[in-house]
């Protein structure tokens, strides 16, 4: 039997989770106020991911940086590798909110997309 304490980061509630993994591989969770708590805990304890938000360089625009985000969670250990790739990109207008800036970054299946119009 294993016990873990986590803070759920799904939403601003920040529930304090107490997770028990039983001998036969069952998951017991306490402290969550919605069902997303369990899926968060399972992911966080096996393959944690994070949404990455940052900017990319812009040319030929009044705006000097374009805000971007990952379309889904990126494996935690690949965040800085992803940053290094994103930092090499320069974009120019026109760009629409949601446009893909980098497709399938680091083979994660996750895209880096624009967070605003340019």
């Amino acid at each position: 039997m294993e016990k873990h304490n986590l803070i759920c980061i799904n939403c601003p509630m920040g529930c304090r989770l107490e997770i028990t993994i039983t001998e036969n591989g069952g998951w017991l969770i306490e402290g969550n106020q919605c069902k997303r708590g369990l899926s968060y805990a399972q992911k966080e304890l096996t393959a944690p991911t994070r949404t990455l938000t940052t900017t990319v360089k812009v040319k030929n625009s009044l705006l000097r940086r374009l805000p971007v985000k990952s379309s889904d969670g990126i494996p935690k250990e690949k965040i800085f590798e992803a940053m290094a790739l994103i930092n090499q990109v320069t974009v120019e207008p026109p760009i629409s909110i949601g446009d893909i800036i980098i497709e399938n970054i680091l083979d994660t299946g996750v895209n880096i997309i624009s967070s605003r119009d340019l």
């Binding site: 360089k57 250990e77 965040i79 800085f80």
Partner: peptide, 11 residues
Amino acid sequence: ETKEESGGENL
């Protein structure tokens, strides 16, 4: 400027 040198070590 940002983006001119890349970030820290991996987690």
